[in-house]
Amino acid sequence: MTLHEGAIITFERTFTMEDVELFTRISGDEGKHHLTPDEQGRVVIQGLLTATLPTKIGGDNNVLARTMEFEFLRPVFTGDKIICEVTVDKLERQTDRTAITSSFRCRNQKDREVLKGYFAGVIR
């Protein structure tokens, strides 16, 4: 996909217990709520693991992030399907790079917003 102002990129992911265990080992975020299943057998996903969803556009388009802001609105659990919608708000072509500013919203399978924010950076 070629990026342009107004472009909307949507993707989804369902987090697993294996994802949480790997992120726990990498991050050291061992909060009890990430390790102990609730009465439904789920654990709460680390916020920063959830925040990897909107950064996918960066990886897909070689964005070097300069600024990121995340607002965590409600917990995400293992087994939740999260749909992330990223909007390219601004693209500014420069001599040797392109500046990008994007906003995002992530919703769970019940259409409840779980995360929102923005990021800005450059594409070389």
Rank of each mutant, 00 (worst) to 15 (best):
V20S: 07
V20C: 10
V20A: 09
V20E: 05
E21M: 11
E21I: 08
R25N: 06
R25Q: 14
I26E: 11
S27E: 10
S27R: 04
S27P: 07
G28F: 01
D29Q: 03
D29Y: 00
D29I: 01
D29M: 02
E30T: 13
G31S: 12
K32G: 13
H34T: 04
L35T: 07
L35Y: 07
T36S: 10
T36E: 13
T36Y: 02
P37F: 11
P37V: 06
D38K: 08
D38H: 10
Q40E: 09
Q40D: 06
G41F: 05
G41S: 05
R42E: 02
R42F: 04
V43N: 08
V43L: 06
V44D: 08
V44G: 00
V44S: 00
I45G: 09
I45H: 01
I45W: 04
Q46D: 07
G47E: 10
G47V: 02
G47K: 01
L48T: 06
L48R: 01
L49R: 03
L49A: 06
T50L: 15
T50P: 00
T50G: 08
T50H: 11
A51H: 06
A51N: 11
T52D: 05
L53W: 00
L53V: 03
L53I: 03
P54F: 04
P54Y: 08
T55S: 13
T55N: 07
T55A: 13
K56N: 03
I57Q: 05
I57S: 02
G58T: 02
G59V: 02
N61A: 07
N61C: 08
V63R: 04
V63L: 10
V63M: 12
L64D: 08
L64G: 01
L64K: 00
L64A: 13
L64S: 07
L64V: 13
A65Y: 12
A65M: 12
A65C: 01
R66F: 07
R66T: 03
T67A: 12
M68Q: 14
M68S: 14
M68A: 14
E69G: 11
F70Q: 04
F70P: 09
F70E: 12
E71A: 12
E71C: 03
L73T: 05
R74D: 15
P75M: 12
F77M: 09
T78N: 06
G79K: 05
G79F: 09
D80K: 06
D80I: 01
D80Q: 04
K81G: 08
I83Q: 09
I83E: 03
I83L: 07
I83T: 15
C84S: 11
E85N: 12
E85Y: 00
V86T: 08
V86D: 10
T87K: 15
V88N: 07
V88A: 13
D89Y: 10
K90T: 11
L91T: 11
L91Y: 10
L91C: 14
R93Q: 15
R93N: 13
R93M: 11
Q94V: 04
T95E: 12
T95M: 09
T95W: 02
D96W: 14
D96T: 11
R97S: 15
